[in-house]
Amino acid sequence: MHYDVVIIGAGAAGLMCAATAGYRGRRVLVLDHARKAGQKILMSGGGRCNFTNLNSTPSQFLSANPRFCISALKRYPPQAFLELVERHGIAYEEKAPGQLFCQGRAREIVDMLLTECDWAGVEIRMKTSVETAEQKADHYLVATDHDRFTTESLVIATGGLSIPTMGATPFGYRIAEHFGLPVLPTRAGLVPFTLHPDLKSRLAPLAGISVPVTVSCRGMRFAEPMLFTHRGLSGPAMLQISSFWQPGDPLIIDLLPGHDLAEELGERRRERPQGTLQQYLAEHLPKRLAQVLAEWHGKDSSLQEYGNADIERVAAAIQRWQVSPAGTEGYRTAEVTLGGVDTRALSSQTMEARDQPGLFFIGEVVDVTGHLGGHNFQWAWASGVAAGQAV
């Protein structure tokens, strides 16, 4: 059976590419080994899908080739996808600046994409595993566990390695290597940290507590909430910085952002000398956390017993808390995969392999990774449209 375009992967990028190509009159087939299309969309954003970020610009993306994403993001900006959402009557809300979520369920985004594919005449085959993809004289031959297909354009939209329970595999990277494209080393991104046993046990009583922090590592800094867990540290702040962290790096965490703790404790010592460190901290932090910090860093006395050096020491411990994670939770819980198909081997205009005509790579399989907050979906839409307009 012959199709103008065969897309491997029925996720965000693959479905977007399929609809775009279908509307151009191309005969499109989408193949996926999963049971349902758009599985990562369905579980994203707590089931409500943070489908884009209005402030998505190239500066929110990591890549060995930082300029690669500029063209696709410029030609298909967040507003373009938002217009599609509005045309389908999907109610949405802005939870944090620029971050748009469905008011209802993420299923609405998947249904919208499937509807667009249906209107564009796209054929989708789920529960179909691709076994081989080979180049023939003027086409590609794709063999699955059910059938064989020929196509002029082969699009790889298989995603990365994150959340293997959702069916993630290295298939896209293997295809790239098979056709001679370089693949950069991959690792988990937007992922919680694990801690060494001693610190893990000390923080165990704080599991479930979330506080706003600033966290710094390798010159990057994020101001977001942090969550203490039974395994370590999570929450948006930790997920964001995890994409920049390397094993052995310390994280510098400010548990009281916006405060000058040394100055404020000095004032409190003068105004209420009988007060305690724990009393002060409890005014700004959850009580359990205030208690733990006071036990760790405070003196068993009122503030009048604190010298200037004591106050400076406490302020440094709380506002420049240095944590060296044991590692991350890895692909099991990672939202994205860093690294992937080297963008220097692809056209930034079309996502086509420079030395392999008719072969395209889009979405997470490519070495373009966004910050938390809807940027990775915006890359899926933009790269999907770029390839869909070229196949």
Rank of each mutant, 00 (worst) to 15 (best):
A12W: 00
R27F: 01
H33T: 03
R35P: 00
G47M: 02
C49W: 08
C49G: 06
N50G: 08
N53L: 02
S59Q: 14
N65G: 00
A72W: 02
Q79R: 15
Q79H: 11
A80C: 03
H88K: 11
G89A: 07
Y92I: 00
P97Y: 14
E108R: 12
V110W: 02
D111W: 04
E116C: 07
V122I: 04
T128P: 01
D138M: 13
H146A: 11
R148N: 08
G160I: 12
S162Y: 09
E177A: 15
E177S: 13
H178W: 06
G180M: 11
P182Q: 10
P185Y: 07
R187N: 04
L199D: 14
L206T: 12
V213Y: 09
T214R: 15
V215D: 09
G219P: 13
F222S: 13
A237H: 06
I241D: 08
S242Y: 01
S242R: 10
S242T: 12
G248R: 00
D249G: 10
I252T: 15
L256N: 05
H259Q: 14
D260K: 13
G266R: 10
E267V: 15
R269N: 06
E283T: 13
H284D: 12
L285A: 10
P286H: 14
L303I: 09
N308Y: 13
D310Q: 10
I311D: 07
R313M: 06
A317G: 07
T333N: 07
V336E: 10
G339H: 05
G340D: 01
A345L: 08
A345E: 11
T350Y: 08
T350R: 14
G358A: 05
L359N: 13
F361A: 08
V366I: 10
V368D: 11
V368F: 06
V385Y: 09
A390M: 10
V391F: 06
